[in-house]
Amino acid sequence: MLKIRDLSKTYSKGQVKAVDNINLEVRSGEIFGFLGPNGAGKTTTIKMMVGLLKPDSGHVYIDGIDVWENPLEAKKKISFVPDTPEIYDKLKGIEYLNFFADIYGIPKDVRQERIERYLDIFELKDAVGNIIGSYSHGMKQKLVLISALIHDPQLFILDEPMVGLDPKSSFKLKEIMRERCNEGKTVFFSTHVLDVAEKLCDRIAIINKGKIIALGTMSELRNRAGDNESLERIFLELTDDE
C-alpha cells in the first residue's frame, strides 16, 4: 500500500540530514507505528508522504502511484491528520466537514451516514453546529479525525494522533484503526506513546537521526533485543547515543 524508496531530506544547505535515505514498505491491512525521539525525522517523513514537503531525493508510492509524480491520484487514496489541528476557526464544524466531503465528491446520503456515525463515536454531535473557534483543542482534533475519515481512505496517515485526545476518544480512535485494518485498509501513524504502539501495531519502525534503526513486528524486535524486553527498553537502548 505504501512504499518509500531511498527518501532523503536535508536542511540548512545539506548540513542537517533530517531524513537519510530511508526505505519502508507497509502492506494493506496493516497498522504501522512510526516511532522515534523528538527531532528524529518522523514528521518530516510524514510530510513528504502527504505532499507537504518535497523530498530532495527518493520516492513515495501510494498503491503504486508516485505522490510527487501524480499527486492528485495519490491524495485521493490517503488522508492526513497533522499533530496540531490548525483549521478554520470561523467555520462551523459541519461546514468544515461538508467542505471536505465536497472536495472528495461524497454524495449527500453517504456523507450524512458517515459524518453522523463518527460524530456519535467522538461525541461531537452537540457541538458540530457551532463555530470551530469555540472548540477546545481536543474537539478540534476530533473534527480533523472525522474530516479525514469522510472519504474512507485506503491509507490513513496520522502524526501523533493521541496527543490532546481524552482517554475515551483515544480508545475509540484505536478501535477505528483496528476496524479499518480488518477491512483491509492501512493505518500509518507516528507516536511517542510506546504502550499504544506496543499493543496496537502490527509492525513498528524506529527512526533516529533520520535513519531507520529498527523495523519489524513486536516479537521480531524483542528477538533482536533479547528476551521479553518491553518496547520502552528496546526504544531506549536503540536511541541511546552512548
Binding site: G93, I94, N98, A101, K108, R111, D126, V128, N130
Partner: peptide
C-alpha cells in the same frame, strides 16, 4: 449545536 438533515449539503 446539533445539526439537522438539511445541514448536510
Amino acid at each position: 449545536g446539533r445539526v439537522k438533515a438539511s445541514d448536510f449539503s
